[in-house]
């Protein structure tokens, strides 16, 4: 079996002396959506940050498109085509929407107009608000700015840390639709979600983590159908 497009393999590590992740593996194929779910404190966000190089791994490797990137800094990973949307503080509040998007494309020296148009096409509301400071937008619109900023690098992988935290159900559905749209354009999506049921619905692959280790790994549909998973993690 060929390597997945992006894989964090057998990752072990944490922020301080104690390990949070234990031999944890997360992967996503080209153009697919992979979702990490699990109870609070399961190390979901930590696993994703590990893939992005935001903590030191004591064991395991991260490979992107077959290349070992374990030692690269997050900034270098951005340059390699990975983009990350943090859960909070994920926009420049004092800057306009358009400036936020421009900053997303900071590393690109070519014309960013097409990328900008793509983001506006994906999130039309941002176009109408482009000269407004991003800090004045509603929660859902802020998330759109955050995702839009990440897309401006025209990444191959988009990583989202709880993109629907704190937004209303309607906005959440809308955001998930957009994420599917992004995946269809060929960008791999790796996302951590609190709303496990809805997220697994759109996931090609789902990872259920418990205490920093893989508990269940399967397609989204199979996980949703698995009675054990339903009972323990999806509330019946």
């Amino acid at each position: 079996m060929p390597d997945p497009f992006l894989i964090g393999e057998a990752m072990t590590g944490g922020y301080g002396a104690t390990d949070i992740l234990h031999d944890c593996t997360i992967a996503v194929e080209k153009g697919q959506i992979a979702v990490i779910v699990g109870p609070n404190g399961a190390g979901k966000s930590t696993a994703m940050k590990a893939v992005f190089g935001m903590l030191n791994l004591r064991g395991g490797r991260v490979r992107l498109n077959g290349e070992d990137i374990t030692k690269l800094s997050p900034q270098d990973r951005v340059a390699r085509g990975m983009a990350f949307v943090p859960q909070t503080h994920n926009i420049f509040t004092s800057m306009t929407v358009e400036e936020n998007l421009e900053m997303g494309a900071f590393l690109r020296r070519d014309d960013i107009k097409p990328a900008l148009e793509q983001v506006y096409h994906l999130f039309p509301i941002l176009k109408t608000k482009r000269t407004q400071p991003a800090g004045e937008l509603s929660g859902g619109q802020r998330q759109q700015v955050a995702v839009g900023r990440a897309l401006m690098t025209q990444p191959q992988v988009l990583m989202l840390d709880e993109p629907t935290a704190g937004v209303s159900p309607i906005v959440m559905d809308e955001l998930f639709d957009r994420i599917i749209e992004v995946a269809r354009s060929g960008i791999s999506i790796l996302m951590v979600e609190q709303n496990a049921r809805q997220a697994l619905n759109i996931a090609d692959k789902g990872y259920v983590l418990v205490q920093g280790a893989n508990r269940y790994t399967d397609t989204g549909a199979n996980l949703l159908a698995d009675p054990d998973v339903r009972r323990s993690f999806l509330g019946g």
Binding site: P74, Q75, V78, N90, I91, S94, E102, M103, G104
Partner: peptide, 22 residues
């Protein structure tokens, strides 16, 4: 571009790093 990157850095250092600002 440089000026905007300074504002971005001042506004949100972590996100500026994620955006590839040096």
């Amino acid at each position: 571009r440089t000026g905007k990157s300074m504002r971005a850095f001042s506004d949100n250092e972590d996100l500026a790093l994620l955006s590839g600002i040096n």
